[in-house]
Structure formats: C-alpha cells, structure tokens
C-alpha cells in the first residue's frame, strides 16, 4: 500500500546487523540493513557516579566512625538477652499476625453480611480498636487479670460451669498476644475488606450462577483473588507489627527493642551499638518477610498476569545467559572481522 519499495531482506536471526558502523568501517551497510545507534545518556552516567560516591562515603562513615562502636555491636548481636527478646518479638508477631488475620477475615465477612447486627458489631469493633491506642488496650488487658481473678464459662449473667484461674491463663505473653491481635484484627479487617471489594462483581455472579456453595465461593473463588490485593497490604501491616511489638513492655514483656532499651540502662555507654543491634535484627526480619512476600505474591498472581515475574534465581540465570550470548556474539564478530 505504500509507494516505498524497499527490498525486504531476510536475515538469519543469529546474524543480526552490527550496531552502527561497526563491521564495515569503510563502507557502511545500506541504511535498511543497519541497527539504529542508541541515544547516549551522559546525564545518567553523571547521576550514577554521584550516587555511587555518596553511597561509598556513607558506607565509609558507617564503618569508620567510632560513634557506632562496631566491636560492641558484635558483642551484643547474639547475646542471650537479645536473642530472648528476639524470640519474644517473633512469637508475639507470629501469633498476632495469624490471629489478627483470622479475626480480620471474620470481621470483614461480618461487615459484608446481610445481617445488620453483625454489620454494626463489626463496624463498631473496627471503629473502636482503630481509635483506642494500643497502649491503652495493653494496659487494660494487663490489669484485667488483677481485677478479675477468675473467668467463668456458663450462662450469661447466670451460673458458670467452668472457671479459669485467670492469672495462670493470662501470662504476659498471652496478654500481649491478645492485645496485639485485637488491635491487628481491626486493621486486618479493612485490608481484607478492601481485597474482597477488589474482586469483580462478575466473579460473585458467576460463582452464584454456577450454584457453588457459599463457603466454596468464598474460599476458592473470592479469597484467592482478594489475596492478590490483601497480601501486599497485609505484609505492610505485618512489618509494622514486628516493630509494634516494642510496646509489649507495657505488659512487662521485653521484646527485642525492650531488651535493647533495658540493657542500655545497665550499660549506658553501649546505647548506640544496642540500637544498631535492634536495627540489624529488624532489617533481617523485614528482609525475610519481603522474600516470603515475593513468593506468596507470585503464587497468587497465577492467572492474573500473562507471565509470572521471574524469581531472582531465574533473573540471575537469564542474566548470565544474556552475558554469555553477548560474549559469544562479540567473539564471532571479531572472528568475522
């Protein structure tokens, strides 16, 4: 349809035209056979150099500044007291994350329910626990057991059948976990609800039209799709929770950060390295969570993307392969020249 009548060269794939004037220095190939010379970006190179210099300076400062006392950092990093705090952080975080998510799913479902009482209860719960500071929740729960020594299961306002000794039941770890879970559930509920809302209405209709049982609709159709939106938001929430556990000293439990603060008062000259130890561990935890997040997201991306993102390992392999191919090509080129 166009008047241009260019010859259509059929090039073997492996024999791609050289970049620019490379191969035929004296007689450039006809334009139609040349590859376009890529635009140079000197600005990018300058920015790269500046950033690299700054990063190097920062790293140098971190290593050499005596303020950071890296020898003390080394001493503290794996001390039993610190590791004990780390275990508390991990326990409280893991338990609260799971219980909080479970509670959040229930609250989100109640929020979507057709029952107005359930909706109102769920709404009120979320409103209340997002309003009340976590410290206050912990404080009330902590002293709860001092005020009510036994809990009874039985007829409401009537006789109780089973009695619990609450101070035996409510260890500091239990109180901390319950407090954080109550709080976490309120936020998780909104994350889950947002995820459920992100699922197209047509999916609900298709599931209903197929006559899929209600529970199946939620577990196998809605939730897996909602999780695509839920996972990143909830991981964010989870990382906040890891650091949020530092409030558990309010129930006389010392997590990683609590131990660091506590040791800092016994060893006032080690305050900075102790804070760096906490930072180091938080970096490790956050990194682990991020790696897990990548794979979980990849799992739930099935079907949502035409091709799944490569794992770092796959990228590495592809990169090596790419380099090798380029090397081969250059090698061939020189041989030909």
């Amino acid at each position: 349809m166009s008047e241009r009548s260019l010859p259509a060269p059929t090039l073997p794939v492996a024999d791609r035209p050289p970049v620019g004037v490379g191969a035929g220095a004296t007689a450039p190939a006809p334009l139609s056979r040349q590859r376009v010379i890529p635009l140079r970006h000197p600005g990018r190179w300058i920015a790269t150099a500046v950033v690299l210099v700054l990063v190097a300076q920062l790293a140098h400062g971190l290593v050499t500044n005596p303020f950071y006392q890296w020898d003390r950092f080394q001493y503290w990093f794996a001390r039993p007291a610190i590791l004990q705090g780390l275990v508390v952080t991990l326990e409280v975080t893991a338990l609260s994350a799971v219980l909080g998510l479970a509670g959040g799913i229930l609250l989100a479902l109640a929020r979507q329910s057709k029952n107005p009482i359930l909706r109102a209860v769920s709404w009120t719960y979320i409103w209340l626990f997002r309003s009340v500071p976590l410290i206050v929740v912990l404080l009330i729960l902590y002293n709860f057991s001092a005020l009510y020594k036994t809990l009874s299961l039985g007829v409401p306002f009537g006789p109780g059948f089973v009695h619990f000794n609450e101070s035996a039941l409510a260890t500091d770890l239990v109180v901390a976990t319950v407090g954080l879970s109550l709080n976490e559930a309120a936020y998780a509920a909104e994350v889950v609800r947002a995820g459920i809302l992100s699922v197209d209405q047509g999916q609900h209709e298709a599931a209903a039209a197929l006559g899929l049982p209600k529970g199946y609709q939620f577990r196998r159709i809605v939730l897996p799709q909602a999780l695509r939106a839920i996972v990143p938001a909830y991981v964010n929430q989870l990382i906040g929770l890891i650091k949020g556990t530092s409030l558990v000293f309010y129930v006389s439990l010392l997590d990683l950060f609590g131990e660091v603060q506590n040791m800092g008062s016994t060893y006032p000259t080690d305050v900075v390295p102790l804070l760096l130890v906490a930072t180091g561990w938080y970096v490790v935890l956050t990194s682990v969570v991020s790696v897990v997040q990548f794979y979980v997201e990849r799992h739930y991306a099935r079907g949502a993307l035409r091709t799944l993102p490569s794992t770092p390992l796959q990228k590495l392999r592809a990169g090596v392969r790419g380099l090798r191919e380029r090397a081969d090509r250059t090698h061939l080129g020189t041989v030909k020249a």
């Binding site: 999916q203 599931a207 197929l210 006559g211 799709q225 949502a304």
Partner: peptide, 22 residues
C-alpha cells in the same frame, strides 16, 4: 442453599465471560 442448588441445573453465560482468572 436451595436457590444455589436450583441454579446448578441452569447454565448461565455472561457478556463479560466472568471466568475465574486464578
């Protein structure tokens, strides 16, 4: 539950397909 059971015997094809993408 009864409504879902009735629907299972009636096929429905949507304008927007509504296949389950996952």
């Amino acid at each position: 539950r009864a409504i879902l059971a009735q629907r299972a015997g009636i096929g429905f094809v949507f304008q927007g397909f509504n296949l389950f993408p996952h």
